[in-house]
Simulated scan of single mutants.
Amino acid sequence: VGTLISFSIISLGAMGLISRLNIGSLELGDYLALGAIFSATDSVCTLQVLSQDETPFLYSLVFGEGVVNDATSVVLFNAIQNFDLGNFSSLKFLQFIGNFLYLFGASTFLGVASGLLSAYVIKKLYFGRHSTDREVAIMMLMAYLSYMLAELLDLSGILTVFFCGIVMSHYTWHNVTESSRVTTKHAFATLSFISETFLFLYVGMDALDIEKWKIVSETYSPMKSIALSSIILALVLVARAAFVFPLSYLSNLTKETPGEKISIRQQVSVILETSYVCYVL
């Protein structure tokens, strides 16, 4: 829900504001793609700032909200890219919604099925039991298999492997030996750390790419670049606030104790941190 709200606000705002800057001929699909890209929050960078020990509740909020938003944004972007937006009509809008729901539902089903299959293989088949090497290999290969199948079927690989991981953590994880649990925990943590480090390094090096800055300076004036950046940042902040505050309010209505409720400070932290990181990336 939050991703769709953010997507709508950013897309509509971009059509109303960026179109006045005369930066080029942008079509409807470009504005929708822009909304899908900036509606995704980068929880990886934000979680590096937060401490799970000091603020466990806020950490869980950012992690859960960020992962789901990222997966939904990817599916939404793929649906936009695969859809013909020429001669837009109400019928095509319904087709677009149907395409989005199909990608989301099919990717989710494939991920869940792959996760359940991995749990069955490790629990029932002899060659997958009581061997740390085989159990770890099966878990990694089944997760990768779900991603490859999704790409072959033109689905969302990220969303598929996300739900596959959720199912594997609930079922496959409890069917392996204790040594396999420790091994997979440290193996995936190491791979995650290496991937995050590479991502940060790549973004930092890309920001200092002189050739790209030359192209930008030759194409647009400095004032126009500043105006474009300011508009995008403002739209991201407004879009984030438009769904964080209402959804947090609804969530607080279901909580009984004050300690379980999301405070205003935590809501503002989620908006500012995720919006800034999303804009920078």
Score class of each variant (00 low, 15 high):
residue 173 W to K: 09
residue 91 L to H: 15
residue 216 V to I: 15
residue 34 L to S: 04
residue 129 R to H: 04
residue 188 F to E: 08
residue 106 A to Q: 09
residue 106 A to K: 08
residue 27 E to F: 15
residue 75 V to Q: 03
residue 136 V to S: 01
residue 153 L to D: 04
residue 30 D to I: 07
residue 5 I to M: 12
residue 253 L to N: 10
residue 135 E to D: 01
residue 127 F to M: 08
residue 166 I to G: 04
residue 33 A to F: 13
residue 7 F to L: 07
residue 192 S to D: 10
residue 217 S to V: 02
residue 247 L to Y: 10
residue 152 L to T: 06
residue 278 C to T: 05
residue 129 R to S: 01
residue 261 K to Q: 07
residue 41 T to P: 01
residue 108 T to M: 10
residue 253 L to Q: 10
residue 67 V to I: 01
residue 103 L to C: 11
residue 83 F to T: 15
residue 167 V to F: 04
residue 274 T to Y: 02
residue 204 G to M: 01
residue 143 A to N: 09
residue 152 L to R: 04
residue 16 G to D: 12
residue 125 L to V: 12
residue 11 S to G: 00
residue 239 A to H: 02
residue 278 C to S: 13
residue 213 W to N: 11
residue 41 T to Y: 00
residue 270 V to I: 07
residue 261 K to E: 03
residue 15 M to F: 04
residue 197 T to I: 03
residue 206 D to M: 14
residue 62 V to F: 06
residue 127 F to K: 07
residue 237 L to C: 11
residue 221 S to Q: 05
residue 32 L to F: 10
residue 267 Q to S: 14
residue 255 K to G: 03
residue 143 A to S: 10
residue 236 V to T: 09
residue 212 K to H: 14
residue 75 V to N: 05
residue 135 E to S: 00
residue 154 D to W: 06
residue 30 D to T: 06
residue 128 G to E: 00
residue 120 Y to L: 13
residue 218 E to T: 08
residue 222 P to Q: 00
residue 221 S to K: 02
residue 57 F to I: 15
residue 207 A to M: 13
residue 252 N to G: 04
residue 239 A to I: 01
residue 2 G to I: 06
residue 80 I to C: 13
residue 104 F to M: 07
residue 240 R to H: 00
residue 121 V to M: 12
residue 71 A to L: 03
residue 45 C to G: 14
residue 112 V to I: 02
residue 141 L to Y: 04
residue 168 M to G: 01
residue 133 D to E: 10
residue 2 G to H: 05
residue 205 M to C: 02
residue 76 L to T: 02
residue 126 Y to M: 15
residue 278 C to N: 05
residue 111 G to N: 00
residue 119 A to H: 06
residue 239 A to G: 07
residue 195 S to A: 09
residue 199 L to W: 00
residue 164 C to L: 05
residue 141 L to A: 13
residue 208 L to C: 12
residue 242 A to V: 06
residue 90 S to M: 09
residue 190 T to P: 13
residue 46 T to W: 07
residue 65 E to G: 04
residue 123 K to Q: 11
residue 167 V to P: 03
residue 71 A to P: 08
residue 165 G to H: 03
residue 76 L to P: 00
residue 74 V to M: 08
residue 197 T to S: 11
residue 86 G to T: 15
residue 262 I to G: 09
residue 98 G to K: 02
residue 111 G to M: 00
residue 235 L to M: 10
residue 107 S to F: 04
residue 267 Q to R: 13
residue 92 K to M: 07
residue 252 N to M: 06
residue 120 Y to M: 13
residue 220 Y to W: 00
residue 107 S to V: 00
residue 1 V to I: 14
residue 40 A to G: 05
residue 59 Y to R: 12
residue 228 L to T: 07
residue 108 T to C: 10
residue 240 R to W: 07
